[in-house]
Amino acid sequence: KNALMQLNEIKPGLQYTLLSQTGPVHAPLFVMSVEVNGQVFEGSGPTKKKAKLHAAEKALR
């Protein structure tokens, strides 16, 4: 199970927000955030999926 699945089991129905998309078309950088218990966690990556995963990993720490 990855961090997204684990976080969804603990806190179902979380909303992930796209904060920014920067970089060239062939190498974009997405920044996504998720709010858990009033705290906002951000993650970035080359795809929205990876950015969401990194945000979930930070939220689980």
Rank of each mutant, 00 (worst) to 15 (best):
E57D: 08
K49C: 11
P12M: 04
E9A: 15
A51Y: 00
P12F: 04
L60Y: 05
P12Q: 08
V36G: 02
N8P: 00
K11F: 15
L19K: 14
G38H: 06
T17N: 09
L7V: 03
V31R: 14
G38S: 05
Q15H: 10
I10R: 11
Q15I: 11
L29Y: 11
G43N: 02
N2A: 04
K1S: 07
L14F: 03
R61W: 11
K49V: 12
K48R: 09
K48F: 06
N8S: 13
P46E: 11
V34R: 00
L18K: 05
N8D: 15
L14S: 09
K58R: 11
K58Q: 15
V25F: 08
Y16M: 05
M5G: 09
N8M: 09
K52G: 03
G23I: 00
L4F: 15
V40C: 09
G23E: 04
P24E: 14
G23F: 03
K50Y: 07
L18C: 11
L18A: 05
K50M: 14
S33H: 09
S33T: 14
K50T: 10
A3M: 13
L60D: 02
H26R: 09
E57S: 09
Q21A: 09
E42M: 10
K58F: 06
V34G: 01
M5V: 09
G13S: 06
P28S: 05
L14G: 04
A51S: 03
T47D: 07
G45M: 00
H26S: 12
K58L: 13
M32K: 00
P46D: 12
G43Q: 01
N2R: 04
F30H: 06
A56K: 03
H26N: 15
G23A: 04
T47M: 01
L14W: 02
K11E: 12
E42C: 10
L7P: 01
I10K: 10
G23R: 04
V34Y: 01
A27R: 14
L4R: 07
G13T: 06
H54D: 14
V40N: 12
A56L: 03
L19M: 12
L14Y: 04
L60W: 08
M32F: 13
Y16V: 02
A3R: 07
E57C: 07
K49D: 14
K50V: 12
Q39N: 05
L60S: 02
K1V: 12
I10T: 07
T17P: 01
A3K: 12
L18H: 04
K58S: 11
A59M: 03
K50A: 14
Q21H: 11
V40I: 13
E42Q: 08
K49Y: 14
A27F: 04
E42L: 13
P12I: 04
L29C: 12
G13F: 04
L7K: 00
K58G: 09
